[in-house]
Design a binder for these strands. Structure first.
Length: 108
DNA sequence: TGCTTGACGCGCG
DNA sequence: ACGCGCGCCAAGC
């Protein structure tokens, strides 16, 4: 019931759900916006655990380096890139320009 | 109960 | 520009 962990999960999911189409955010940024600085890793853990069955735009969450955190040779990786490109996001050398597509990220 | 793992992030060399 | 190491947090064994 009063599981504080679930509350955190809920806030993280909420933030991810707010990421607009054609834009991306980072794990650390999502955690920060959820009011949980330092929980970047947990965001990834959460997505990995629910992935498929959720309607969350999980593909819009990438690493702060602008690269997809999933193994390059994995199916999930190509799927994520495919979904992002379908939203108009362009990859350059396997990376995304956060200054261009980053949502509410560091002001630059 | 303690060590290892993982869809992270950042400072250094 | 890039690889490496350390810190951070929760989950799995």
């Amino acid at each position: 019931m009063t599981n504080l962990t679930d509350d955190k999960d809920d806030r993280i999911r909420q933030v991810i759900a707010m990421i607009p189409e054609g834009r991306v955010s980072t794990y650390g940024n999502v955690a920060r916006m959820a009011g949980l600085p330092g929980y970047a890793r947990y965001v990834g853990h959460l997505l990995k655990h629910q992935d498929a069955c959720s309607t969350l735009p999980w593909h819009r969450v990438i690493s702060s380096t602008g690269k997809i955190s999933l193994p390059v040779d994995s199916v999930s990786h190509s799927l994520q890139q495919q979904k992002l490109e379908a939203e108009g996001i362009v990859f350059r050398n396997g990376k995304i320009d956060l200054a261009l597509y980053g949502w509410l990220t560091h002001n630059r």
